[in-house]
Amino acid sequence: MAAELAAASERELPERESVIRRIRDHEGGKHRPDDEYTELYCRVYGLSEYALFNDVDEDATDDDEINAIELARRAAASDVGRETTDRLELAVDDLASDYPRTPPGQLLGRVRRHLEYVGRLLDGKKTLAEYRRLLVAGGWLSLLGATCHIDLRQFPAAAARLRTAAQLASHAEHPEIRAWCLETEAWQALTEGEYHHAMVLAQGAQDVAPRDSSAFIQATGQEGRAWARMGKGPETRAALTRIQQMVSPMPMPDRPEHHFKYDPAKSEAYTATTLSWLGDPAAVHYARQVLARLESEEDGGPRPRRAASARLDLALALLATDEPGEAGHLVLQAMETRLLVPSNYWRAKEVIAGVERRSVAEAGDLREVYRELYGAPQLPQLHT
């Protein structure tokens, strides 16, 4: 099986013994395969992810949701109808709210099925108002699908989804979706180390977005992150100040986990990330507060995936205050959760590189854990 997985992979896997140990963990139920290995098993067996790894038939579950909407549509005397579009928009909100706690490969399957349903509805008879609502729903779904593809580092598919989302937003005259498309591209550029390009895209998103929208705030945050990666302290802090001014009067939304709805709590998390990337020691305080909140029972309960990312922020911030021991411990905890998505692997590598340069005894163990989980790391130079 290790040989078959290696043959199915598009990149070099860890040494065979490491892969064999992982397969045994999967077979024994010790760990669920992460997104990369899930895809490899599916290639080897020629089966879907849901057929291989889910006790509950999630295809059927998602089909039930769509079938329920379809029944309501047929009950109304029109091809689409208000009831159908209302329920479809609620389903879009549900998917966007599930994003922080659902593996991207799994959420992507649900998004695809809803997009197929939107496509069928667009082929039917509809009023102009219904047509626009379908375009908007399709735009949000395409955007969410692109975000999942970026998390999985499937960049050609992400680009295609973003183009579709932008086209639907243009037809529907929906500037916020257009702005989110640019913001999402900016995040991808950041993960690829294209910091100046990310800054330009983030500023472009702000030009397009309505000034009172979540997209405008999020794009401002991405601009700040890009400035931080380029080591531009004044520009970074100016962006953070603008975010604080926009967020401070905001109420907490009904669904703070909604990926496309900015809530005040996210501001603190963005501050922690941005200052840690800038190498500002103040990031330690923010990052500790963010991690404590994400692991508490408040505001909807613990959010393990976000907490794993928050550990990376805190670990990087601790390197700036010359505390590599705790930084190494935190990055190990983040990796062992197995909740990091591929688009965040580079952040773990960056911390490991910093720990190694400080000659911490456990640095070799961190490298080995990373190699077993994600493949041989090509460690970057830590930004200072």
Results as ranks from 00 to 15, higher is better:
Y50H: 13
V80R: 02
A96W: 04
E49F: 00
S78R: 11
D63H: 14
R32D: 10
E27S: 07
C42I: 03
E36A: 05
D55C: 07
E89F: 03
L90Y: 00
L47W: 09
D55E: 15
N67T: 15
V80L: 01
S78M: 05
T84I: 09
N54C: 13
Y37S: 00
I66K: 11
D34W: 03
A96T: 03
I23R: 05
A51Y: 03
G29L: 00
E70V: 13
N67S: 15
E27Y: 00
D98S: 02
R82M: 14
V44N: 00
E83M: 15
D63M: 08
D86F: 12
R43A: 02
D35R: 01
G29I: 01
E39H: 05
E36W: 01
P33A: 08
S78F: 11
A77N: 09
G29T: 10
D57V: 06
E89T: 03
T84N: 07
T84S: 08
D55A: 15
G28H: 13
L47V: 04
G81W: 08
F53T: 05
A96V: 01
N54K: 15
E89P: 00
R82C: 11
Y41L: 07
E58Q: 13
D57I: 04
E70H: 14
D62F: 13
A60F: 05
E49Q: 06
T84E: 06
Y50N: 14
Y41F: 14
L71H: 13
K30N: 14
E83V: 15
V80I: 01
D63S: 13
V56K: 09
N67V: 12
T84K: 07
L88K: 01
L95Q: 04
N67K: 15
H31Y: 10
E65F: 08
Y37G: 03
R43D: 03
D59G: 09
Y50R: 13
E70C: 12
E39C: 01
V92I: 06
F53S: 07
I66Y: 07
D55T: 10
L88Q: 00
A75N: 12
S97N: 11
L95A: 04
V80W: 06
D94S: 11
V80D: 02
V92M: 04
A96S: 06
R24L: 10
G81I: 13
I66F: 10
A76M: 12
A51D: 09
D35A: 11
D86M: 09
D98W: 00
S48V: 05
D35V: 05
T61M: 11
Y37F: 14
T38D: 04
